[in-house]
């Protein structure tokens, strides 16, 4: 496991804060209400330990928007929700007059749209902080049991941001994760260390 100092994680958390904040500004316009954001917490964990730190059991059903990206670090970014929370999120972002049947068709698109928005904003903020370019590719939605979804993903270390946000009185727990192999994680850490030594 890559060992991160408190300051390195602090710098990245600030970047994620900016990313989540700018995504929330767009979401807030989409839903016509304020998106209340919690203070996010960032951790680096083994992929195997990621589920437990999500508070998830391997058999829990989850929904993840997976966004591959390239550039300075080749990796995948994920926005994960439990399936129940994903319905709350879709309900919050699609218009009230949609029936449940119409919703079924739209749910997938709505989740991908929100995922793309949040992940793109986070990647942009991290790229801006570290003065490097991260290019996003087409996102996809993956559903299934948490253990299976994680097993499908490449990469053995995960940088995980737990965020809580509420929209229209619905409390939604989301997790933003970056799955990186050790080489990419080290490259990311070196970039953060360069940023810190240039600015502190």
């Amino acid at each position: 496991m890559t060992d991160w100092s408190e300051l390195e994680l602090d710098a990245l958390t600030e970047a994620f804060n900016v990313g989540v904040g700018s995504a929330a500004a767009v979401l807030s316009k989409m839903v016509g209400a304020e998106v209340v954001l919690s203070v996010p917490e960032l951790r680096v964990v083994d992929k195997a330990a990621a589920l437990a730190s999500f508070g998830l059991a391997v058999s829990d059903r989850i929904c993840a928007v997976v966004q591959p990206y390239g550039g300075a670090f080749e990796s995948r970014a994920l926005l994960m929700f439990t399936e129940a929370r994903s319905y709350d999120l879709v309900r919050a972002v699609v218009p009230d007059y949609m029936t449940d049947m119409q919703m079924g068709d739209m749910a997938q698109d709505a989740l991908i749209e929100v995922g793309n928005l949040v992940l793109d904003a986070c990647l942009t903020a991290v790229g801006d902080l570290l003065a490097c370019t991260l290019t996003t590719r087409v996102p996809a939605l993956v559903k299934g049991e948490a253990g299976e979804v994680m097993a499908q993903m490449e990469g053995n270390e995960m940088m995980l941001l737990h965020m809580l946000f509420s929209i229209k009185d619905k409390n939604i727990d989301g997790y933003v994760g970056f799955l990186l192999d050790q080489q990419a994680m080290q490259a990311l850490q070196q970039a953060v260390a360069r940023f810190l030594s240039a600015h502190l």
Binding site: E14, V18, S22, A24, A25, E34, V35
Partner: peptide, 9 residues
């Protein structure tokens, strides 16, 4: 001085 740039904020 905030990252939360929503209009209501």
């Amino acid at each position: 001085f905030s990252a939360n740039v929503q209009e209501p904020v």
